[in-house]
């Protein structure tokens, strides 16, 4: 996890002071646990999030 956090910040060219790394890793682990209810949800094919593309196209046509 520590390597993942460090490499993500490096790839995004974001500042990450070394003394903050441990805290960020701890919080990221806690978040993974907090987000776990979402992992268990079964999402069918209809629930795709790109309906906004059509709304933008229709907006232009008006």
């Amino acid at each position: 996890m520590t390597d993942l956090v460090a490499s993500t910040f490096k790839a995004l060219k974001l500042p990450l002071p070394e003394e903050r790394l441990a805290e960020i890793v701890t919080l990221a682990r806690e978040n993974r646990k907090a987000f776990s209810p979402l992992k268990a949800v079964s999402l069918d094919k209809g629930d795709e999030p790109s309906t906004f593309v059509l709304s933008l196209i229709e907006e232009d046509e008006e």
């Binding site: 956090v5 992992k39 949800v41 069918d44 629930d47 999030p49």
Partner: peptide, 20 residues
């Protein structure tokens, strides 16, 4: 900082939940 660590697939999964 926590937001930068959210995987894209998790974000999309969260948005798909809205459809449900």
């Amino acid at each position: 900082e926590q937001g930068f660590l959210i995987p894209a697939v998790d974000y999309i999964r969260a948005q798909r939940l809205r459809g449900l």
